[in-house]
Design a protein around this nucleic acid. Structure first.
Lengths: 168, 168
DNA sequence: GAGGCTAAGTTCGTTTGTCAAACTCAAATA
DNA sequence: TATTTGAGTTTGACAAACGAACTTAGCCTC
């Protein structure tokens, strides 16, 4: 006797047109394959082309395209640097706009760890001012809790090369 | 004199392997084209195949595939219903796991409204218990603020067909 | 009960995107 | 001059997205 939930399933369209919805606009740009993973790399401070390539196992040509896209969007900055004994290279670091995606990244991470990773998480997020562990949640608009700039990421199983990155 | 930020751009790889990172696992599934937009529809209570089709202007064949995918992932439930004067149809509604993406959706929305929509947002999120406007932010782990089940979405420019949806 | 209608889904040929591998380029080094 | 190395481009095979047309199942009208 297939329980037909007529009450919940009514004819209905989106109350917010796609071209006025921040979520839809963001999705359009960010939800393309690889983009969020590249942003994740930047979030962790991985800035070099070859390092991103190695971490993500993404085709070179695609990475080139995506980096251009993200720079054009103002999420990444192309920053020249010069390793000793080499000519100048380009690195990719988050802009302010890019850093603002921190909450989204952490929200995704929280969800993924809970629902796809058996509740395990590899990092904790703490308030660098007092060491309080933090999570992403709903807060009353008038109440100002910790902000992204107060945030420090602690790796539970640190590896050799991994150095915690600073906020911009 | 191209300011070469050698300090920031060091050789470095991800401190968290992709297959152990909730964010990477989530991205793998959710960041496929259309998926977040389909979840957005579900979040707004748009549950019918034809309605989603109309809102998103997505190819029918792709929508079929994606809905199957999201059902298989446990994010959507395929729920039969029967409109009067028609045979039973299938509707798609968020599971608990799907609803838990609410924070991610709202974080994305916040970012998109701020950075791609000129600071305008079409909805506000309020605590249904007391009407307090809410935002997504960082909260100390031990402090329990409003949860997703307390959340109500208020449309600033309501349209005729749009009816606010309840939590599951 | 023949024919039409509609929501949901499938099929099909074209276009676009992804991919891996090979190639290019420029500066630093040997 | 030849070699190396990080960054990027090119190429051709393959997969996915696309839009349009087609199918299906039940309800309706006549």
């Amino acid at each position: 006797m297939s329980n037909s939930n007529n009450s919940l399933i009514e004819p209905k369209n989106t109350p917010v047109p796609l071209d006025k919805c921040g979520m839809a606009l963001a999705a359009q740009h960010l939800m393309e394959k690889w983009n969020m993973l590249i942003i994740r790399e930047a979030f962790y401070g991985v800035a070099r082309f070859e390092d991103i390539l190695e971490d993500l196992q993404i085709p070179r040509s695609v990475l080139t395209t995506r980096l251009k896209q993200l720079v054009a969007l103002g999420i990444l900055d192309r920053t020249p640097y010069q390793p000793e004994g080499s000519r100048t290279r380009n690195g990719y670091v988050l802009t302010k706009k890019g850093w603002d995606l921190g909450l989204t990244i952490l929200a995704l991470m929280q969800w993924g760890d809970t629902h796809l990773n058996g509740g395990e998480s590899q990092i904790s997020v703490v308030d660098k001012r007092n060491g309080d562990p933090l999570r992403v949640g709903l807060v009353p608009m008038d109440q100002n809790g910790p902000s992204l700039t107060d945030l420090e990421i602690v790796f539970k199983h640190p590896n050799k090369k991994g150095v915690p990155n600073g906020t911009p």
